[in-house]
């Protein structure tokens, strides 16, 4: 029916217009879209990139930012950085974790094991604030999903440090950042050339650091992304094949009715 297709068209416009409007709120600067290895529908994380990103996180970000939802074991799980079992054990053991109480009721420190959560830099929110001029460095576990434009925004932020324009007065202890809403951010530019040394031949540039640590944060936020795409591809393929069969069946079931109509049409 003509009106049906019109209604569908209107609803399709409706469906497409909505997400754009949902995210329209806010006055954040324009964020440029990047090409990422995990783009749907078949994208995957680059294991080397995730391992480099973990290194950047560990030596730079982790000085202030926690990642409370992640455990060392995650680093060796499928769909992630793909560290070997031995490497995961070694990485975990580098952290001193508080455990206890022991038989005498005392808390004690021990080397980390793969089941431990990533060790947080501060004991609590208050300590984190006190050490960072009153600004709280947010947990990075799901950061790649917690800001509009996700990873594109994180990359833009990490590479967005510039000299403040002359007509802008900066508050004390704040840094100018082109991507940050309001442009004044408490975090100083964390990614200085050479601050982390890459050993796999990748150039140790701030741009590479930003890309790699963003990829790592994306994996941290969506550790099942590869599994999701893989399962999704199978299910979508099945659904499409099933739908074709169902359509043909539907046509076959209805064919006698249409045939009868046609003969009646020619009869009268």
């Amino acid at each position: 029916m003509r009106s049906t297709s019109k209604l569908f068209a209107a609803l399709a416009v409706f469906a497409m217009a909505l997400p754009a409007t949902v995210h329209a709120a806010g006055d954040a600067p324009e964020i440029e879209a990047q090409e990422w290895s995990w783009a749907p529908p078949f994208g995957q994380f680059d294991k080397g990139q995730l391992q480099r990103g973990y290194k950047v996180y560990k030596y730079v970000c982790a000085n202030c930012h926690s990642m409370n939802l992640l455990s060392y074991r995650n680093l060796g799980e499928p769909g992630g950085p793909g560290f070997s079992e031995a490497a995961v054990k070694a990485l975990a053991a580098q952290a001193q974790i508080q455990d206890g109480p022991d038989d005498t009721g005392q808390m004690f420190m021990r080397p980390g094991i793969p089941a431990d959560r990533f060790k947080a830099p501060f004991a609590n929110k208050e300590a984190a604030r006190a050490a960072n001029g009153g600004a709280y460095p947010p947990d990075l576990s799901v950061m790649a999903k917690a800001r509009p434009h996700g990873p594109d925004y994180l990359y833009a932020l990490l590479t967005g440090y510039e000299e403040a324009p002359d007509d802008m007065t900066m508050s004390r202890g704040m840094h100018y950042n082109a991507a940050f809403p309001g442009h004044q951010i408490a975090m100083a530019n964390p990614l200085i050339e050479g601050v982390v040394e890459y050993t796999d031949g990748t150039a140790s540039t701030p741009d590479n650091y930003a890309k790699d640590v963003t990829a790592f944060m994306m994996w941290a936020a969506e550790p099942k992304l590869e599994e999701r795409y893989r399962v999704g591809a199978r299910i979508m393929l099945f659904l499409i094949a099933f739908a074709i069969v169902m359509y043909l069946t539907k046509k076959a079931v209805w064919a006698p009715v249409h045939k009868r109509d046609h003969s009646e049409e020619t009869k009268t």
Binding site: H23, K145, A146, G232, L239, A243
Partner: peptide, 26 residues
């Protein structure tokens, strides 16, 4: 049945490839 399958394809497109597209990052 055919219509439900078509709808599942739309559902699956969001579910597998853009699960957070309709939500809010906050």
């Amino acid at each position: 049945g055919f219509a439900v399958l078509l709808f599942c394809i739309l559902f699956g497109a969001f579910l597998f490839y853009a699960p957070n597209y309709l939500g809010h990052s906050d």
